[in-house]
Design a binder for these strands. Structure first.
Lengths: 351, 351
DNA sequence: GGGCGAACGGCAAACGTTTGCCCGAAATCG
DNA sequence: CGATTTCGGGCAAACGTTTGCCGTTCGCCC
C-alpha cells in the first residue's frame, strides 16, 4: 500500500505548525518571514514525508501554471527542434516548462491547438506557425495571453516577434550568385500567407533591381507550401518559361531539396548547369549531395530570444508591455550546390 | 477591461441551475443525467459567456491531469521527433497532451526531469532515454507512475516497453554483407548501459557465429555514447587492429555517419574499400553520400505503440496491470554504403 | 389511489495551495 | 516606562471543479 502522497497539511502537522507556515517556509520567496529554526524543522518534516509540491493546486490558487505553449507546424520538420531547445533551455531555469502543439500548417488546427493549450492553462505562447493573417493569434491576444511569434511574424505589429534578417540573407545569396556570373536567376517563392514567404520574395525583388540581374515576373514561381514537392514543381514551371536559367534561389531548404531532386530527375546537373540555394540551413543539408549553399539562421537563438521576450512579459505581470521585434542576423554558407554560371551552349554569350 | 474568465458558477447562475448541474451537463460522460432541455440551456449559457473549462481545477479535484510526460535525450536528435509524433497523435484523441523533458543522456538530469514532471502532475510517462539500470525509472515506479519505455528498455521486466527487433535487424545486415562476400566484419557497438547497445552487440555475436564470419573480439569496438565522434573513434580502433577489414557494422546511424566521415578523411572509399551500415534509418541518411544502408525501425509506430500501452494502463485505473513488451519488426534498407567485398590487394584470397 | 422506481437536479464537501489579515510578543524608541 | 514598530506565525477564505448523497417529482402499475 503506497502511503498517499504527503500534503502540505501533513508536513505542517508533523512539524507542529500551521499549514500556512509550512507553505511559507517551503517557498524561497517567503522563507524570510519564518525563523530559521522552525523553517528547518519544516524542511526536515517535508523531507521525511517525501513531500512533493503540488503544482496544480498551487496553480489553481495563483493562476500561474509556469508553463508556456509552443505551437509549431510539425516537430519532424527539422527546423523546429533547435528552436524548441532554445526555448526550453531558456525557460527551464525560471521554473517554466513548455507544452508543444502541432498544427500541420493548418489554420483550423492551429486554432484548436491554441484553444487546448489555453484550457490547459499556460502563461504564455510561442508560435512558430504564424500566418501573416492569423486569426487564432488575434483571438488569443484578446484573452490576454502573452504571445511571441518566432521565425515568422504576423501583420499586426502588436504581437512581439523574433525573425531573421531575410533581406540581407537573400541579398547575400544574390550577390554570391552574381559574383559567380549568374544573371538569369529564378526564384522559388514561399507561400504568400507566411511572413518569410512574403519577406524573402520582396527581398528578391529589391535586390534583383540592384545587381543587374535579369528581372522578370516569369522568373518567379510560387510554392503554396514549404514542401519538397512544391520545390520540384517550381523547378518545372521555371524551366518551362526560362531556357536561359542558370540558378534557382529557393525560399527555404525544403524547397531547395525538392528542386535538387527535380533537377536530378531531368538529368540537369547541379551546380554544373544550374546552381541552387536554400534558406534556413536546417540540419543535414550540409550532408546531402550536392551539399546545399544556403543562408544560415540561428535556430537556437531564435527560440532563446523568443523565450526571453516572453519571460520579460511574464515578469512584468499583467501590465501589457510594448511589443518587441527582434531581427537576428543571418550568414551565407557556401557549399557545393552553387558554382560558376555555365557559358551559353553554342552561340556567343548574350551580352 | 477584460471580463474575468467565466467560471462554471457563472454559467450555472446564468442558466438558473446549480453549479453541479452545469458541471454534469457540460461533461459528455454525465450529460445523460440531465434532461435535454436544461442541458441545452446550460450549453447556451456557456457559449454566451465564452466559458472555458478549467483543466487545472478539474485536475485538482480528480487527480487526473490528462497529461503524460515524454522523456528523451535530445529533441534535436532526429530519432526522436517521429516517436514524439507517434505518441502525440495517439493520445490526442483521448484528450491527453504530452510534456517533453530533455535528459541530454545524463542519468542525473533524467532524475531531475522526471521529478519535475511528477510535480507537474502527469498521469503517465514514456521514457526514450532509459538505461538498462535506470534509477530514475525505478524510483518513479515506486510512486505508482505508469511508465513505458520506448526504443530502449530497462533490465527490470516489470516496466512495459516497446522496442524493435534488434536481433533480426543485425541478422539482416550481416546476411546482406555476407552475400556481398564480406568475411572480416567489424562492429562498432553502442554503449553498454543502453539496451540497444547491449542487444545489438549480442545479436552480432550470435549471428557472427552462424555465418562463417571471422569472429574475434578485436573486431568489436565500443562506443561510449551514440555520437558521431564515437563512430569515428571506433573506426580508428578497428582499422588499427584489423587490416583485412572490409565492412563495419555500426550499432546506430549516428555512429555510422561518424564512421563514414572517418573513412573519408583517411581516403578510404566506401563502399569501394569498406562497406558501412547503420541502424535506425533516421531521417536524411538516405540523402547523404554515400546514402546509408541501414535497418529501418518504425519510429512513429514505436511512439504510437508505447502510447497505446500507456493509454490502456491509464484506462485500467489504479489496478496495476501486467507489464507488456512489444517488439516491432524492422527491415533492412540497402543503399549505397554497402557493396561487394573488395578482393584482397595482391595475394590470393584468404580462403 | 397507494406504492415504487427512475429520472432529475440541488447541496456541500472536498482537492492542496497561497495569501491578506490579524494577533501576541518582542524589540525599539523617545 | 509607555508607545510604537517589527517579527513570527496562526486563521480562514479563496481558486474552479467534481461527485456522493439526498430530496423531489413523475410516470406507472396493480
Amino acid at each position: 500500500m503506497t502511503t498517499k502522497k504527503a500534503t502540505l497539511k501533513d508536513v505542517a502537522k508533523r512539524a507542529g505548525v500551521h499549514v500556512s507556515t509550512a507553505s511559507r517556509a517551503l517557498d524561497p520567496r517567503t522563507r524570510h518571514r519564518i525563523s530559521a529554526d522552525v523553517a528547518a524543522k519544516i524542511a526536515k518534516a517535508a523531507q521525511q514525508l517525501g513531500y512533493r509540491h503540488n503544482q496544480m493546486a498551487a496553480s489553481l490558487r495563483t493562476k500561474k501554471t509556469n508553463a508556456i505553449g509552443i505551437v509549431i507546424p510539425d516537430i519532424t520538420n527539422m527546423l523546429f527542434p533547435p528552436i524548441i531547445r532554445g526555448v526550453d533551455d531558456r525557460i527551464a531555469p525560471h521554473g517554466y516548462i513548455s507544452i508543444i502543439g502541432h498544427t500541420e500548417g493548418d489554420a483550423e488546427r492551429e486554432k484548436r491547438v491554441i484553444e487546448t493549450l489555453q484550457v490547459r492553462g499556460i502563461d504564455g505562447l510561442i508560435v512558430a506557425s504564424a500566418r501573416l493573417d492569423d486569426e487564432a493569434i488575434t483571438s488569443a491576444m484578446k484573452d490576454d495571453v502573452f504571445i511571441v511569434t518566432v521565425n515568422r511574424r504576423v501583420k499586426d505589429e502588436g504581437v512581439s516577434s523574433v525573425v531573421s534578417d531575410e533581406r540581407s540573407g537573400v541579398g547575400a545569396v544574390l550577390a554570391h550568385l552574381v559574383s559567380l556570373g549568374h544573371r538569369h536567376i529564378g526564384y522559388a517563392s514561399g507561400p504568400a500567407w507566411s511572413s518569410t514567404g512574403e519577406a524573402r520574395l520582396s527581398a528578391y525583388r529589391y535586390w534583383a533591381g540592384t545587381h543587374g540581374i535579369v528581372h522578370s515576373e516569369s522568373l518567379i514561381a510560387r510554392a503554396t507550401e514549404y514542401r519538397e514537392a512544391e520545390g520540384a514543381r517550381c523547378v518545372d514551371v521555371l524551366l518551362a518559361s526560362n531556357p536561359k536559367l542558370t540558378a534557382i534561389v529557393c525560399a527555404n531548404d525544403l524547397l531547395a531539396i525538392g528542386a535538387l531532386a527535380a533537377l536530378k530527375k531531368r538529368g540537369i546537373s547541379c551546380p554544373g548547369d544550374i546552381s541552387v540555394t536554400g534558406f534556413n540551413d536546417i540540419p543535414f543539408v550540409d550532408r546531402i549531395t550536392p551539399s546545399l549553399t544556403t543562408v544560415r539562421i540561428e535556430h537556437y537563438q531564435c527560440g532563446s530570444a523568443a523565450a526571453g521576450i516572453l519571460l520579460e512579459d511574464l515578469q512584468a505581470g499583467p501590465v501589457r508591455r510594448e511589443p518587441r521585434h527582434i531581427v537576428l542576423p543571418v550568414s551565407l554558407v557556401v557549399r557545393e550546390s552553387t558554382g560558376p554560371a555555365p557559358k551559353p551552349p553554342r552561340r556567343k554569350g548574350s551580352r
